[in-house]
Simulated scan of single mutants.
Amino acid sequence: GEGCSGPSSQSLVADYFTRAELAKAMGFLTIGASMGTAGGLLIGGQLAEIFDWRWAFVLMGLPGLVLGAIIWLTMREPERGRYAPAGTDMAQRPLGETIRSLVTNRVFMGLALGWAVQIMIGYALAFWMAPIMLRQFGISTGDVGLYLGLTFFLGGIPGPILGGYLTHWLCLRDERWRAWLPGVTSLGAVLPLALSLTSGDFTTFLLWFGFAYAIYVASQAGILSGIQAAVEPASRGFAVAIALFFNNLIGQALSLFVIGALSDALTPAQGPQALAVAVFAVCLAAGVAALAIFTWTAAQMGPSGYLEKMRGG
């Protein structure tokens, strides 16, 4: 159900806002994912307790039908590539040619692979913090969704907005910040995460966790706006689809598997702390690798900024 949302929404945003405004717009777009994660935990968990998990899926899906109808009735398709420089080729290329153009685009590939590596941190936070809470603090299963949801709200709303405005401000000085900032924030989120995982107080655990999540999601504006600006308008949606494929393959499948396997291997020595150690180890490795990839990507942009030829405002 979510397969078309990323490619279509990000491509549409690039036609609604100028290149100069794109980072801020993508920051606000990212709030949707944060609110969806938080709302699913808060509301979905309560619905599952009141009814059952099957009805929770049904009831949580109904608002999407309403929003879909509102979008269908009120939104209008913007002019394709209206902020692209005059003379930009808007023709849709054959699939094979589109794939070749993306694979040989170093900036796009750097952003896509860097995103796939750094999102290992995001999936680790979304999937593994709940069992860590259960193991380390002994709270009830019903309260996990409540506390996690509130934390995702507190970190997931200001983080993308601040990240969008910061990316915008920095990119006015140097376009390479679309890659540099995600690299810095990817590794920067690891320190508060470590403080969260090693905390013996539940409130302190949640506060540092929310701070780590806010820093992590601040990276999304630079990545999303950079991808849209690095490719031609006719291939923007497919470029996001390719990037999300890498995300699912590396960020989700590999990250969750490695953390689970590492936790199992460490359990004899670490006991209940094994999962927290595994999460931190994988997030630290992902943060270091992401910083390296994004630094390389920035080098491909050049000192004057790789968007000069594509800037439309």
Rank of each mutant, 00 (worst) to 15 (best):
A112W: 07
T104Y: 01
R106T: 02
L102S: 13
M133V: 09
A126M: 09
F127Y: 14
M129Y: 10
R106I: 02
T104L: 12
L125G: 15
L111A: 09
A126Q: 05
Q136K: 13
L125A: 11
I121R: 04
W115I: 00
I119A: 10
W128Y: 13
I121V: 14
A124H: 02
L134V: 07
N105V: 04
L102A: 13
Q136H: 12
A130C: 10
G114M: 02
I121S: 09
L111K: 04
A130I: 14
A112G: 14
I132F: 09
G114L: 05
R106C: 05
L102M: 14
Q118M: 11
L113A: 06
A124C: 07
N105I: 02
P131T: 10
V117L: 04
I99L: 15
A116I: 03
Y123M: 10
R106H: 10
L134A: 12
I99K: 10
W115Q: 13
R135F: 00
P131L: 10
Y123N: 12
L102I: 14
M133A: 15
N105E: 03
V117C: 07
I119R: 08
M129S: 13
R106N: 01
Q136N: 11
L125E: 11
A124V: 02
A116T: 05
M109I: 06
M133P: 05
G122C: 14
A124I: 03
L111C: 06
W115A: 15
I119E: 09
L113V: 11
L125R: 05
G110Q: 01
A124D: 06
L134W: 01
L111R: 04
Q136P: 01
G114R: 04
